[in-house]
Amino acid sequence: MNKYKIPLTAYPEQVRELAVHRYKVIEPYLLHEKTCKHIIEETGLSERTIWYWISQYRMDGLKGLLREPRKDKGSIRVAREVKEQTTKLLLQHKKRSIASIHREMCTFCGLNNFAAPSYHQVYAISKNLSPRLKKLAHDGMKSYQNKYDIVYRREASHPNEIWQADHTLLDIVVATGPNKQGRPWLTIIMDDYSRSIAGYYLSLKAPSSIQTALALYQAIKPSVDDISKARRKLSTALKQELQFHKTVSEEAIQLSQRTEELTPVNSTSKLKRYTHE
């Protein structure tokens, strides 16, 4: 009966490679190309190992050549009380050595009739402790929060919602005066959403609020091209507005003239004119 319930692909690559290697060793025997004795002479493996691999392959195929991991791998075989006391000592003392804790645990086990742990077991318990737990126990809550707590970071949802300022020392050397050289600082203003550069400023002085302010000014102020475009748009809009008013005025005059032509003359005014004549 096949004892391997999980598929071969579920095993780690290294385990599968080992199974393939074992198969290649016994493959000549399975194909009747070599005897078991020849394989033992070529590989240097024991006869018992070769026959075990052959029987496992015939029983379960390639899965039979897999090396099953130990069920107790990673576990430390010490009493629960011993492990708890060791953990307590490890968390209480930050700079105390493993050897010192091991000696104290040997004394503790002697007084309480427990099997004393080895040095390597105490070291393994220390290595298995969570770094977060060690940080909290040794350095306190504030230090733990500074290192491990999640900090909320705002993210922009559209361009120009959030800008970021950053300074970097350029990898170039420029002349700053007679027989003087220096590396310039680059200050940039970057849009958080598009990651595009909105403004920048170069200076030979160390970064400060002045450099940041000048970079912001360079990013905010409109360029010459922007001003020219705005002027052209404004001029076009004014011309269109004037033309519109002119057209409206001409149409109003024409409409007034037509109205006067169509209005009937008052009969009383006609009678007075004929009487006068």
Results as ranks from 00 to 15, higher is better:
E277R: 15
Y123I: 00
Y152K: 11
G177R: 02
K3D: 02
E241Q: 15
F114M: 05
M1P: 03
V25Y: 01
R153V: 14
I172G: 08
G140F: 07
Q218L: 03
W53L: 04
P117M: 01
E68C: 08
Y152A: 13
S194P: 13
R258C: 02
I210V: 08
H167Q: 01
V248A: 14
R232S: 12
T236C: 11
E33C: 01
Q164S: 14
A230F: 05
K94W: 00
E260H: 04
R183F: 01
Y123A: 06
T247I: 06
V25R: 05
E251V: 04
K233L: 14
Y23F: 15
D171I: 04
T107M: 02
R258D: 05
G177F: 02
S46W: 13
P184I: 05
G61C: 03
G182M: 01
K34Y: 04
R22T: 09
I197D: 08
L202D: 05
T247E: 12
I150T: 09
D72T: 15
R154S: 10
G74I: 07
D139I: 07
E41L: 07
P222W: 04
G74N: 05
Y201V: 00
A206Q: 11
S209F: 11
L133C: 08
A215K: 00
Q211A: 11
I54G: 07
L262W: 03
A165D: 02
D225K: 13
L30M: 05
Y201R: 01
N2C: 00
V151M: 11
A137M: 13
K88Y: 14
P131S: 15
V224P: 04
L45I: 08
D226F: 03
Q218V: 00
L216N: 02
E13V: 09
R231S: 10
I188V: 15
G110T: 06
V248T: 10
D139Q: 11
G177H: 00
Y201H: 15
A237S: 10
L169E: 15
L204I: 07
Q145H: 11
P159Q: 12
L170E: 10
I54Y: 08
S157G: 10
C36V: 15
R22W: 05
T212W: 02
Y193A: 11
L234S: 14
E104V: 10
I210P: 00
S75R: 15
A213M: 14
I40E: 08
I162R: 12
T275D: 08
E251F: 04
Y23N: 04
H158C: 12
R183Q: 13
K270M: 10
I220E: 02
F114L: 06
S46M: 08
P7G: 03
L262R: 06
L169K: 14
R232F: 12
A198G: 07
R154C: 10
P12T: 03
K95G: 06
I101M: 03
L204E: 05
